[in-house]
Design a protein around this nucleic acid. Structure first.
Lengths: 135, 135
DNA sequence: TTAAAACTATATAGTCGCTATAAGGTCAAT
DNA sequence: ATTGACCTTATAGCGACTATATAGTTTTAA
């Protein structure tokens, strides 16, 4: 199968596939005489795995790490679990930060509900004052 | 005041200040005979405004937009409010996405609590199966 | 048969908001 | 005279792609 087919079957751009290859995430495929890449089912699975990891927002470095674990299947999976735990706490702290941010934004927004002139707008005033840290 | 003083008083790296200048966010300051930048109180305020916007996670493009509104203080501030509303809903959808992600990650993590060999690890299996969409 | 469309290849630059590095000029104090 | 702290510009790097340019190949249609 050529790159276009692989791309379509996994739902990825061809550029992204070449990019993963350059990054060492996807093993270099065979080539036809004309230089076209030729992929196997293995590549489909590997690419799908990468995309599922990405949909979990794992970084390419983390996916690399998981790949190393997969390639040495007899070691303990403690490290796999640790990686996931780290990632979960990373996601949780992102959520916390964004929730605090949302609160700030909503309280800022409440300072101007009507159609004032910009110079009287409570929102701009609020940002300029920098009084956003208390309350 | 020179760039180091400005940087310290606002709590920003000097590189960042020059970067904002190149981006057109901070007006070009005067220069001493030796070429050193000379800043005024105006610059302190403007830079602090930029940093407060950044702490609200507004993009440089959005800050540009706010700057344009400030420079035309007699127009209605509807656009300011709209910008903020957009930003709030952007933040909210980020939160929602991250919460869904967290759920996925936690349920994936639950598939392996003990020290198995990697080849039997439920976490890696879970990712490989790609059965993460039905909860 | 030929011409156009669709596919493939590589290389390179752009996105965002900085941050880091290199290589040098200026200034005050020792 | 030299150290050190400051300033200057230019350039490259981060992450994970995405877009563009340029060119070769294959497939399809007229």
């Amino acid at each position: 199968m050529r790159i276009g087919q692989l791309a379509q079957s996994v739902g990825v751009d061809t550029q992204t596939i070449r990019f993963y290859e350059r990054q060492g995430l996807l093993p270099p495929p065979g080539r036809q005489e004309n230089g076209y890449r030729v992929y196997t089912e293995k590549h489909v699975e590997r690419l799908a795995f990468i995309r599922r990891c990405r949909s979990l927002d794992l970084s390419l470095a983390e996916i690399h790490e998981l790949k190393r674990y997969q390639d040495d299947p007899h070691q303990s999976c403690t490290a796999v679990n640790a990686l996931l735990d780290d990632h979960i706490s990373h996601v949780r702290s992102q959520i916390t930060a964004l929730q605090a941010l949302e609160k700030q934004l909503v309280s800022l927004r409440a300072r101007c509900n009507d159609d004032r002139e910009v110079k009287a707008c409570g929102v701009l005033a609020g940002i300029s004052e920098g009084s956003m840290h208390q309350q």
